[in-house]
């Protein structure tokens, strides 16, 4: 209990408090502002009311944009997970010369392909394909951007599945499809759950691609609509934004809870080493 020790403890506590406040204040705002009669940018004890919720539900595009977000994310997540699983299995089991270099190259390019650098060519490409204002087309573009990283992550999980499992199934007469469906995918399930959550969250928060490729407000997802929520004067519409933000954050939280409960990131063992 030297003075130096006391000072260090106080300093540490203050630091923790500041960091905590930094993360907690936006959360508290999200909890209070939607139900405040006069919501502002500051944090204060709300005057409880549900009128903001009613206003948001009446907004012409708010709910529809959340549905758009869901459609976009579900398609992108399904495409990413399905293709990544097949590609990861193939890349993990088949020996191709330069396989690792190929994977790294894909990973590197993927940050460019759907990133800001490829904005113009991607727009032109989609325009020529007639996929502007198509939610399905946008979902595919998002999935394409996520695939290399998803394959990369999932390949590590598939690599960890011992080959004797597959050989065992093959000796009992399982076809390649049965080997994949009965053995490899179930054992790589923690990896697939990871990709599922990761790609959904990524697609849910993606702003740039839908902003570029979906010009019709009625087809825009929540992440894009958020930016256009203004009143007639052009300043932020604070009756709608807090409730909308709250609704926008719910699906991701629910997804995390469901996945970790149902597909818990665990491994049962069964190889004696």
């Amino acid at each position: 209990m030297t003075p130096g020790w006391v000072v260090r403890r106080i300093g540490f506590s203050v630091l923790v408090a500041v960091v905590l406040a930094f993360f907690a204040v936006p959360m508290l705002w999200l909890a209070g502002a939607p139900f405040d009669a006069r919501p502002g940018f500051g944090l204060r004890w709300p005057e409880w009311t549900l009128s903001n919720v009613h206003a948001t539900l009446r907004h012409p595009f708010a709910l529809r944009s959340l549905v758009n977000s869901l459609v976009l994310c579900l398609v992108a997540t399904a495409v990413t997970t399905a293709f990544a699983a097949l590609a990861a299995y193939a890349l993990s089991r088949v020996r191709i010369p330069g396989r690792d270099a190929l994977l790294y190259l894909l990973l590197l390019l993927s940050s460019v392909v759907t990133g800001t650098a490829a904005m113009v060519p991607l727009f032109v490409l989609m325009l020529q394909l007639g996929l502007i204002d198509s939610r399905f087309g946008t979902a595919l573009a998002i999935a394409g951007g996520m695939l290399p990283a998803a394959i990369f992550i999932l390949k590590d999980f598939v690599d960890a599945v011992p080959r004797s499992y597959e050989e065992s199934a093959r000796v009992f007469g399982a076809s390649p499809r049965q080997v994949l469906g009965h053995v490899v995918l179930p054992i790589a399930r923690p990896g697939i759950a990871t990709i599922l959550v990761w790609s959904f969250v990524n697609a849910w928060g993606n702003f740039l691609l839908p902003f570029l490729l979906l010009r019709d407000v009625g087809k825009q997802p929540a992440a894009v609509l958020m930016r256009t929520l203004q009143d007639e004067g052009g300043s932020a519409d604070l009756t709608v934004i807090p409730v909308f933000s709250l609704l926008y954050s719910i699906p991701v939280v629910v997804l995390y809870l469901v996945v970790s409960k149902r597909y818990g990131f665990r491994f049962h063992g069964g190889i004696k080493s």
Partner: peptide
């Protein structure tokens, strides 16, 4: 050798 019982 490692029995390869399917863990799931």
């Amino acid at each position: 050798q490692d029995y390869a019982l399917f863990p799931h």
